[in-house]
Design a protein around this nucleic acid. Structure first.
Length: 427
RNA sequence: GGAGAGAUGGCUGAGUGGCCGAAAGCGCGCCCCUGCUAAGGGUGUAUAGGCUAAAACCUAUCGAGGGUUCGAAUCCCUCUCUCUCCGCCA
């Protein structure tokens, strides 16, 4: 969420940064367009309400003192009835205005960082670097490789749950587990992250803290009759570990890695990636989360990206790094780099990690603050990135390590996690 | 699921209707004294908002939301969470 003081100080500047996402974001009637007026109205009502409350407090105190001395205060008490009534009315109005403003504020996206390139769609994302050499021979799609090897069972997934669910079997199931362990070990042991294990369910406050709510409720699975949702990413519970906390600056930066399952309704993506396991309602992911200071946000983002890249490099999977353009940066993010892995069957790079800096946007929403020596608390900066999405990593391995005889080699770094297995062959 | 207890500032913990934003202690900051190995004295120390050049000041916050009252940390209702016991359960 944006800074309320800044809203008053630099309305034009903020508007320009937000409008880069698309003119509809600041169009007439949008939350942004209503914000300044709601802010002014709220303060006006609040000021009026507060002056009445001050009046009431003064009079009450006087009554108390008279009573204390044993004097009669019935005249003052009678006069107070009217004031109290007004206080209640004004307070109700003020609270209503406050709620309206707060609701609008939550709908406004993060202003983009100046370095985000302009663009109209993901086509305009900018390639930053390329690593590895993509194989150029004909490779079957991972769903065929997996089916032939008997390690991916799409029918079983559909039977058990529905479309976009898959049963992973045998060596692939173990590979899923191996990837999880390998990634966590890498980040915890080599990159200095503290591993956490968190709930895969979060309440609405937590979902609001990182920006999934209120705008993107349609993308989430909600538990019936509960104020709870299945998490779409570990970002939600891990970042919110510190919600409403004031951290000492000496505790920053905090860096956590976490494995969680992720659940997404994929509303609006009907028809996209229907086949295979690239776009599932449930998938596994190892996530990296940084809680840091605003000054460090951008340099920390570079580090975070390098940590995600390290996974792909260790697995020897060709990939490229792109900087998302203004049209593609997510609601809560100010700046995002995607890592895209090479999928030979599709002859293109596909997203496997998304690393973002949120600036103080989430820190403000979630009430995560830090205090400098002698200073006032201020919102932390948050970052996160996939390190990596495990299902898609599995896809990348199946395709990039596929061999003419239909078997799939196991990347060297994973073999210890696979009980020494080197190749997945049809049984 | 049943029964009971509880939720107060960074922490511990007082406070059952009015000079209580809240005693005391701990911790921490600053100052002083002292100097012989760790102690004494003083003082300050919540968050948010409003108004300010800045203060002063004003308002709110004692788990959350409602209510009673001239006035609520304190009384009433609802909810959430924590703890203990019982039941059930991986």
């Amino acid at each position: 969420m944006i800074d309320r003081q800044q809203l008053r100080r630099d309305f034009e500047g903020l508007q320009a940064a937000i409008a880069r996402r698309g003119s509809e974001v600041v169009a007439a009637g949008s939350a942004w367009a209503r914000l300044a007026e709601l802010d002014a109205r709220q303060r006006e009502l609040k000021t009026e309400s507060e002056s009445q409350q001050a009046e009431r407090n003064r009079a009450s105190k006087a009554i108390g003192m008279k009573r204390g001395k044993g004097e009669d205060a019935s005249a003052e008490i009678a006069a107070m009835g009217e004031v109290s009534k007004r206080v209640k009315e004004l307070d109700a109005l003020s609270k209503e205005a406050e709620a309206e403003f707060a609701a609008a504020l939550l709908e406004v996206p993060n202003p983009l960082h100046a370095s985000v390139p302009d663009g109209a769609s993901e086509e305009d994302n900018v390639e930053i670097s390329v690593w590895g050499t993509p194989r150029s021979d004909e490779v079957p799609a991972h769903w065929d490789i997996g089916t032939d090897l008997g390690i991916l069972d799409f029918e079983a997934g559909a039977t058990l749950a529905g479309s976009r669910f898959t049963v992973i079997k045998g060596a692939a199931a173990r590979l899923e587990r191996a990837l999880m362990q390998f990634m966590l070990d890498l980040h915890a042991d080599k990159h200095g992250y503290e591993e956490v294990w968190v709930p895969a369910i979060a309440n609405s406050k937590t979902m609001t803290g990182t920006g999934q709510l209120p705008k993107f409720a349609d993308d989430l699975y909600k538990l019936e009759g509960e104020d709870q949702y299945l998490i779409p990413t570990a970002e939600v519970p891990v970042t919110n570990l510190y919600q409403d906390k004031i951290l000492d600056i000496s505790e920053l930066p905090k860096r956590h890695c976490a494995y969680t399952p992720c659940f997404r309704r994929e509303a609006g993506s009907a028809g996209r990636d229907e086949r295979g396991i690239i776009r599932q309602h449930q998938f596994d992911k190892v996530e990296l989360v940084h809680i840091t200071t605003p000054e460090r946000a951008l340099s920390d983002l570079d580090e975070l990206v390098s940590h995600a890249q390290a996974v792909l490099e260790a697995l020897e999977l060709p990939y490229r790094t792109v900087k998302l353009c203004s049209a593609d940066v997510g609601f809560s993010s100010q700046l995002t780099f995607d890592l895209e892995v090479w999928l030979p069957s599709q002859n293109c790079y596909r997203e496997i990690s998304s690393c973002s800096s949120f600036g103080q946007f989430q820190g403000r929403r979630a009430g995560i603050r830090y205090r400098e020596e002698g200073g006032k608390p201020q919102p932390v900066a948050t970052l996160n990135g996939s390190g990596l999405a495990i299902g898609r990593t599995l896809v990348a391995i199946l395709e990039n390590y596929w061999q003419e005889d239909g078997s799939v080699r196991i990347p060297a770094v994973l073999q210890p996690y696979m009980g020494g297995m080197q190749v997945i062959k049809a049984s």
